[in-house]
Every structure is written in structure tokens, then in C-alpha cells.
Design a protein around this nucleic acid. Structure first.
Lengths: 342, 342
DNA sequence: GTTAGCACTCTATGAGGTTGAGTGCTAACA
DNA sequence: TGTTAGCACTCAACCTCATAGAGTGCTAAC
């Protein structure tokens, strides 16, 4: 069977209507509120076809139709009309420039959640590929060294390194020079065991203690930056009964609290990125079991210097895709703008 | 009317039973399952008295009794039998020592939530009163200085300071010495505008740029450490219908996500602290509107050096107070132990 | 002071009936 | 051949009513 123009129009009408009301849509409604000028009977025939083709389905025999996952997918892929979103708060927010990445991200998440009325999350940009700019070891206490590492994008890591034996000022200075000359300009990804070993052999005679410290610095650099993820508007899920019935809410809230779980979503989104960097996962398409009754829309953003992160929105399948995608696009461009200004 | 021994016994039985079952408790149940050997009729008379005195109440005329807030309060204050809690996971967890405060706190929250099956939160210890141990300014980029400040307890703060004009190596060194000699040993609280001004005048001739940097360091020290709070087991609230009915869940989840809101609870708990540092808020007693149908138990903990933080547990009023308080006490002592070992 | 007995209250449960939205099918129509 | 009016049918949602059962308060007797 073919999906002709009329069927498309009807499908679109069904989806639009269902997105608005959340109620199954009947043939009479379609017949009255479209410019097709067809009787409900004709619509019924067409709807039966659409159901057979898998685009819509009936919750029960005597109810109207609701879109199936396939129907949503078709809508998102071919029929959406993105809405432009003006977000005043966002503009104001970005005017007073945030020095702290954390604050910025939290605010973005909040604005997104408030604008869309869905649950939002945002991952801090990964800095693995950023280059080391500056390394410094200082003596804080006898027996404790402080290692500070700054990478491009002014991301700062610090670690306290316990040492068995004190280093002389002279050795500390040497070590600092050694570390900086060898590691500056390398990305954190590139600093591997081989490089660390080479460094150690260069340090030469000073032996054990220095070896220890170099190892610790290596560790500090490698240390899996624990995926920072911020969420906002988790409680928006309570606006949608289909996400809250039968204890589904518990699962979702759990997932949003255990931020690592959201990691797989971030991962997936960064990997599949192409084009606009916006992706829609409908129902089972999302990699998280707890979201099988949701739709998830993700967008990657870039803060320059290869620092890529992901914003995600989680809501019911009958999500206002147009609005959500419009919002995410606006955010993407604002963040881009923000970076360029710097 | 007086609360004699028999009434107390009956009250205790009602509360115990209700904590277990969550169902209103009838006179017959009490008559059968206590060692009082009284008929249900007698119990009924006593229960009528207890109701008049405000310790228990009836959801409706033909139902059993449930404890009132006053009843819970009486129970918590005078009749509780704390249960010793052995928490194997906790021991294991603390064996592999956590170097990062953040990881430690998250794990504690998780263990507490899992053990009690209520929602848990924990605030990072405040470091306002901790003394500055070490300050260092370094040049990262032309035009950007990195300020690293270490306070007792090895809490590290860092800030990038933009400078209009580059400082010479010599001046930077002088500045470092100046900052360390004057600020070391002071607590962050103690470093006020007066001290900063004195420092500036000491810096003397170098004038503007140095003044700017000193101001920025002052800012960095003052910068309200944004109350770090971690939560775990928020979704445990779904185990208790009385917290989930009529959209209450939404409010609670919101409060747990917006961590600042939990701040007032932390505050309250630290202020009212006395004795064991454990406090119970029943219903309206908690400072948060969203928790008016909950009970909240908080415990302050100390990681030495005056670093005090708060652990909180939020659950239904029919919470297993004995277990919760036992758990918190165990945690308190483990954390104390942990510090002593260091 | 304690208890047995009884009338009373109120919730929870389930059966039965009604309504209304919506369908599928058929036959007539353009 | 596509469209439509009409009709019988289905099913969830809602209301009502009756019943069972848990529990109470009160009274009178022990």
C-alpha cells in the first residue's frame, strides 16, 4: 500500500492532535478540523489503512487512534516544522558571563527544562583531547605535594600526592621543568605509559621518589574525569501521566539521580553525531531501559577547542518535537556565540 | 488526664504496629499481641483517652488509630530502642580509602539510602573556618594568572585571574611571598576587606596591577563555596504511597534536585546541634514545606579540623526511627574513625 | 476496674446498568 | 470507483447499589 498525499495529511493531523491533547484521536475530529472536507467514514477507511501500515494504533477497539513509534519516527523525519524559540532568560543569563563552567551548565539545564517543561540534562564538555598547558608541583606540607594541571580551555585539575620522602627545592624545580617541557602541548589522551616511562628514565639518578611522583602525575592526568552531568526539571515528568503510571516514575527519577546511567545516552549521542548534531530517540531507540516509554532528544554543543558536550531532553513520546528541537538549536547557537566572544 | 504505664504500653504498641504495617491499628490487634492481657473493650477505652490527649487519631470513625505527630514525637523522645546497625558495605567501602572528598560523600549517601530505604542527602563539610595553608600564583598564559589556595583538610580552590598587564617573574615571586606570609594560618572567614587593604598597602609602589590581583585572591577565598550537597535514593520515596499521592512526589523530587533548597535543612541541623548531633523533624517541624508529610532525621558529622557536615534522611512519618538513628550513629562513628586514621 | 454484647459507622469491593465516543461494515450515491 | 450515510457493535468510564468486614462507642453485668 502506498502512503499518498491524503494519507500523509491525515497522519499528520492525527499526530498533531494527539501531541496537543494526549487523547486518542477519532475520525470525526479529523473530518471536522482539517481542510480535507471528507466525511468521517472516509477518514475511517484511511485510518484503517494507516493502522495496517503501522503508523498509528488503537489502544482498544472502540477508541480513536494514537501514533505508533513508527508514526512518530515518520513525523520527526519528514513532517516537522521547527519552531523558532526566543528565550529571553537565556539571553539575560549569558550576558552576565559565567566564569565557572559548572554554573553555566547548571543554568543552561535549568533554562532548557523551564522552556520545554520536560526533564533536561547536560554533560560537561569532555577535555580528554585538550592539550596540557601548564603543570606545577608545589610542596604544601612535608610529605605532601600538590599537583596542578591546567589544560586548554582553562580546565584545572588538582591532586594531592603523598610522598614518602621529601624532595629538595632544587629537585622540585627540576621536576617541574622536566614535566613542563615533556608534557606541554600533549593532549591528556596522548599521555600514556610509554611517555611516563620515558620521563622517568630522563629523571635518571634521583630514582624512586621522583618516579613515584611522576607516576602520580600521570595518574592525575589520566584520572577518568568522572562524567559531570547536571540535570534540571526532573519533576516535569510528573506532568505526563504516561510516564508516571505504574511506578515508571521511580525508575526515571532513579536514572536522573544516578548520573552515570545517563552517560550511555551522552555517549550514544556523541558517537552518532552528524549534521546538526541533533538526534531523536523514540521509545526503545534510546539506550536506556528506563526510558522505553519516553522520547529523548539530544544535541551536541561545542565550546571551541574541541570541547564537546551533550544536552538531552527527556519527555513523553507525545513530546512537542518542533518546540524541543527549536529550543535546542537556539541553545546550540547561543553557546557557540558565547565562545566566539571570548 | 495522666499518661500512666498502661497507656504508654498501648501507645507504644499502636505506634510499633503502625510503623510496620502502615495500616490503622485496631483495639483487637493490641489486645491479642501484647502481654497486657486486656480485652479489646478495655483497650478501646484507653485508646479513646489517648486520642483525647492527642497522641493518636482516627482517619475516620470506623477505623483503627494511627499515631499523631505528637505521638511520634513522644515515641522518638522517650520510647525508642535504637537498633545497632552493622553495615558491611560501609566497612568495605571505607577500607579502600577515598582520596576525593566528593567520592566519599557520594558513597556515604548511597550506603545510607540503601540501608534505610529512604531518601538520603549529605552536605560537604564547610571549610569556612579552616585555615589557609598555602597560596600560590602562577602565570599560565600571558594575561592570565592561576591562583591556587589550599586550606587545612586539603581542600583546594583555584581561580583563573585575568590581568591587564603582565607581572614580572620577580614581582610574582614577591607577591607569592607576601600573600603567604600574611594570609597563612588565617581562616577563610577571617580574611576580610581590612586585611586585604593592609596587604595592598604593603605591596606598595607596584600599584594597580598588584592591587587587582590581591583583590582577586581575596574574592577567590571569599567566594561562597556553593553548598555542595549530594543525594541518593530519591526514588525510595515511591515506596511510600503517603509521600507519592496527589502530586506530592513531584514536590519532593524537585526539592531533592534543587540542592540549594536542602540548604535550609542543613543549616537548621547545624544550628540546633547539641549532644549526639542527631535530630528528628516530624511533619511541619522540618523547615521545608515540601516535607510537611515526611519525617526528616539529620546527623552532623565531623571530619576533624572543624569540618562539619550534615547527613539527612527523608522518609514517611511512619519511618523506622530506631533503624534510621542507629544507621546514622554508625555512620557518624565510622566517619570519625576514618579521620582519626589519617 | 474489666468485659461481653450490641448497635452503629464507614470503607472497600464488586456487580450491574448507562452513557458516549468511536469503530467497521454495508448499501446507496455521484 | 471513490465517497458517504446509516446502523449495529464495542468498550472504557462512570454511577449506583448492595454487601462484607473491620472497628468503634456505649451499656449493663461481673
Amino acid at each position: 500500500m502506498e502512503l499518498d498525499e491524503r494519507k500523509k495529511k491525515i497522519l499528520k493531523a492525527v499526530i498533531r492532535n494527539y501531541l496537543e491533547t494526549g487523547e486518542p484521536v477519532g475520525s470525526r475530529t479529523i473530518s471536522k478540523y482539517t481542510d480535507l472536507n471528507l466525511s468521517s467514514a472516509t477518514i475511517r477507511n484511511e485510518m484503517a489503512d494507516l493502522e495496517e501500515m503501522g503508523y498509528i494504533l488503537q489502544p482498544h477497539t472502540s477508541a480513536g487512534r494514537i501514533p505508533s513509534d513508527q508514526g512518530y519516527r515518520f513525523y520527526v523525519d519528514t513532517m516537522m516544522e521547527e519552531k523558532d524559540r526566543e528565550m529571553v532568560e537565556l539571553k539575560e543569563m549569558l550576558l552576565e558571563r559565567q566564569d565557572k563552567m559548572e554554573t553555566l551548565l547548571k543554568q543552561v539545564a535549568k533554562v532548557v527544562a523551564q522552556n520545554t517543561q520536560y526533564a533536561a540534562m547536560i554533560s560537561a564538555p569532555s577535555t580528554h583531547r585538550n592539550k596540557v598547558k601548564f603543570i606545577q608541583l608545589s610542596r604544601v606540607n612535608p610529605g605532601q605535594l600538590l599537583a596542578v594541571i591546567v589544560v586548554e580551555g582553562n580546565v584545572i585539575k588538582n591532586n594531592i600526592i603523598p610522598v614518602a620522602e621529601d624532595l629538595s627545592d632544587e629537585n622540585l624545580l627540576k621536576l617541574n621543568i622536566l614535566l613542563n617541557t615533556h608534557l606541554n602541548g600533549l593532549s591528556m589522551e596522548e599521555i600514556n605509559l610509554g611517555i611516563i616511562a620515558a620521563l622517568k628514565s630522563q629523571a635518571g639518578i634521583h630514582g624512586n621518589i621522583i618516579g613515584e611522583v611522576i607516576d602520580a602525575v600521570g595518574e592525575a592526568i589520566k584520572a577518568d574525569e568522572d562524567l559531570e552531568i547536571y540535570t534540571s526539571g526532573t519533576n516535569n515528568i510528573f506532568r505526563y501521566p504516561e510516564l508516571t503510571d505504574n511506578g515508571k516514575a521511580s525508575e526515571l527519577v532513579g536514572t536522573f539521580e544516578e548520573k552515570q546511567q545517563l552517560g550511555s545516552l551522552i555517549q550514544e549521542s556523541l558517537e552518532n553525531e552528524e549534521g546538526t548534531g541533533i538526534q531523536v530517540y523514540i521509545g526503545d531507540e534510546a539506550p536506556l531501559q528506563s526510558m522505553k516509554d519516553c522520547s529523548v532528544v539530544t544535541a551536541t554543543y561545542e565550546l571551541g577547542e574541541g570541547m564537546k558536550g551533550t544536552i538531552g531532553i527527556v519527555g513523553p513520546k507525545r513530546m512537542d518535537y518542533d518546540k524541543v528541537i527549536g529550543t535546542l538549536r537556539t541553545i546550540q547557537s547561543k553557546l557557540d556565540e558565547l565562545y566566539r566572544k571570548e
